[in-house]
């Protein structure tokens, strides 16, 4: 029951991020989703009682629940980009598309593992949904910061798949991924900051004018 609650919490948060119209709501959604993911891995670590998993859990909390959202919030505040996300598709249509995507994910995972049965099996469905929704966010949100968040949602989905299907990636890989994320977010954040200072906007759509 608890695992199920957390898993569907992750899915609901992904949908909430699709529904979000402001950057702060989007960041909050990501933070909440990461928190659910943290609880899930914590339960896994507690069950298997492995030190490595505990370390991963701690890092997850530090990076995804605290550092990255705080950093993004700070960037958003610095460049005063909180007003809108530059939605190219309105929330209702986005939501319908997201439902369709996760229905496809359901159909697809149903072919690999039988979904009614072990609750953990639904983790694959949810991770695939989260990954697809993340991609969808990256495509349809014009502001660069929102795109970073789409990427992070994708990463959350992939992490969930790895954690649930194979019981986690190798330890070193896991740690490396966290540093990757941290670096990517910092670099992208700085880029966004610079782009904003140079062009006074972070609308990725308008960057097409830069081509030669």
């Amino acid at each position: 029951m608890a695992v199920g609650l957390i898993l569907f919490g992750i899915l609901v948060m992904a949908f909430a991020m699709v529904a979000a119209k402001r950057l702060s709501a989007l960041i909050f959604g990501f933070r909440a989703q990461s928190f659910f993911l943290f609880m899930l891995t914590f339960i896994l670590a507690w069950r298997e009682n492995s030190t490595q998993l505990y370390i991963v859990t701690t890092m997850l909390f530090a990076v995804k629940v605290v550092l990255v959202p705080n950093f993004l919030q700070k960037v958003a505040r610095r460049i005063k980009a909180d007003e809108d996300l530059g939605l190219s598709v309105n929330p209702t249509v986005s939501m319908s598309a997201a439902v369709l995507l996760s229905y496809m994910a359901y159909l697809f995972t149903g072919k690999i593992v039988s979904i009614p049965g072990e609750f953990e099996n639904s983790a694959l469905f949810i991770s695939l949904s989260a990954t697809m929704i993340g991609t969808f966010l990256m495509i349809t949100r014009m502001k660069a910061l929102a795109q970073i968040l789409g990427l992070l949602v994708m990463e959350n989905g992939i992490f969930l798949a790895a954690a649930s299907v194979s019981g986690g990636m190798p330890f070193i890989v896991e740690i490396a991924i966290f540093f990757d994320i941290l670096l990517v977010v910092i670099i992208l954040g700085i880029f966004v900051f610079k782009i904003n200072r140079l062009f006074t906007h972070i609308d990725v759509d308008k960057l097409t004018e830069l081509k030669g």
């Binding site: 359901y106 159909l107 979904i115």
Partner: peptide, 11 residues
């Protein structure tokens, strides 16, 4: 019915 048809019919 079970699985995906359940969802489809409900929608």
């Amino acid at each position: 019915t079970g699985g995906s048809y359940k969802i489809f019919l409900c929608v």
